[in-house]
Design a protein around this nucleic acid. Structure first.
Length: 303
DNA sequence: AGGGTACACCGCCATT
DNA sequence: ACAATGGCGGTGTACC
């Protein structure tokens, strides 16, 4: 997953390209469970000189984590690197003590084991991914893709991340807090009846939308619509809507010079005060600080 | 900063 | 028996 997101040059989308270094803790080549041979010139010591470390799923979540990996992760963290994990890779981060006192997640099948083995880690078993400072963890494979796209968004902004998501043929964006475990079997109903309503809402974010309007557009009752949202997306309708609105606001702040109150109106968040509270809650910074960060930093070469 | 109001959310239940 | 739906009311809270 990280190789697909970061390892393929896309000069029309992301410049400069990410420089990806594949490495492994052992000296000999590694063969994945599916038979791919990982043969890289880089040893684990490269972790000391990179900006971002991504630990994929381990071959077995209950096997001891190689001590070389643990030490390399600690060194990378000491350098201030951004460190992410996918699936059972969270066990390596936890073993290195990097997750102590932090929020983290892993595949739901391993969540109980992670919490039991590392009691000081705040395990969130039912989210797609977590970001706690420079430490990021994600659930299974598809959630790892969501996390990688989020990292691209941090580096290059929402518009670029959205383009990349289109390129990779994944839904626009899934928030980290979304439910990892939905009650319906995933593959059969992945293209469910909800997506037209989502498109309908996204097309008129700047208008006052209520649960009643949502239901009318979906031709059901408010009660049933709420249930469908929670069952398939893991969030309530209005919660989804504000997430979507803040995301739109981020795009506008990145790509336009509109004053903040006009951005607030254009994304449907009403008064600037209201806009500010939602934006800071979800984005982590104030609107003007967010805009400044993206216009100033030219997203320098990232390893 | 605070108070009032409208409404989102959700449990419960009857109906289809 | 089972699943999905939609109406109702209580509660909490988001918004102005």
């Amino acid at each position: 997953v990280p190789c697909e997101v970061f390892g393929i040059p896309r000069p029309d989308l992301i410049t400069p390209a990410y420089e990806v270094l594949l490495c492994r803790p052992q000296d000999e080549c590694t063969r994945t469970g599916a038979g791919l041979l990982v043969d890289s010139p880089h040893g684990i010591d490269v972790l000391a000189s990179v900006d971002t470390v991504i630990v994929p799923a381990l071959s077995s979540f209950d096997a001891p984590v190689p001590s070389a990996l643990v030490e390399a992760l600690r060194a990378a963290a000491g350098n201030g690197a951004r460190i992410a994990s996918i699936c059972s890779g969270a066990f390596a981060l936890a073993e290195a003590g990097l997750l102590d006192g932090r929020s983290a997640t892993t595949h739901w099948m391993y969540a109980a084991a992670l919490a039991a083995r590392y009691p000081s880690v705040r395990v969130c078993p039912d989210v797609l991914y977590t970001i706690d400072g420079r430490l990021c963890t994600s659930a299974g494979t598809a959630a790892g893709l969501d996390l990688c796209l989020e990292l691209v968004r941090q580096d290059h902004g929402s518009a670029v991340a959205a383009d990349l998501a289109r390129r990779l043929i994944v839904p626009p964006h899934r928030q980290g807090g979304q439910a990892q475990y939905v009650t319906t079997p995933v593959p059969a109903t992945v293209d469910d009846s909800l997506s037209p309503v989502l498109d309908w809402a996204r097309a008129r974010l700047d208008t006052p939308l209520s649960l009643a309007r949502f239901a009318a557009a979906a031709r059901t009752s408010p009660r049933t619509l709420t249930r469908r949202f929670v069952a398939t997306l893991g969030v309530t309708p209005m919660r989804w809507l504000t997430d979507e609105r803040v995301r739109r606001a981020q795009e506008l702040l990145e790509t336009t010079r509109l004053p903040v109150d006009q951005v607030a109106r254009a994304c449907g968040l009403g008064t600037p005060a209201n806009f500010r509270t939602h934006f800071t809650r979800i984005a982590g910074t104030t609107p003007t600080a967010y805009r400044a960060a993206f216009t100033r930093s030219p997203a320098s070469r990232v390893r």
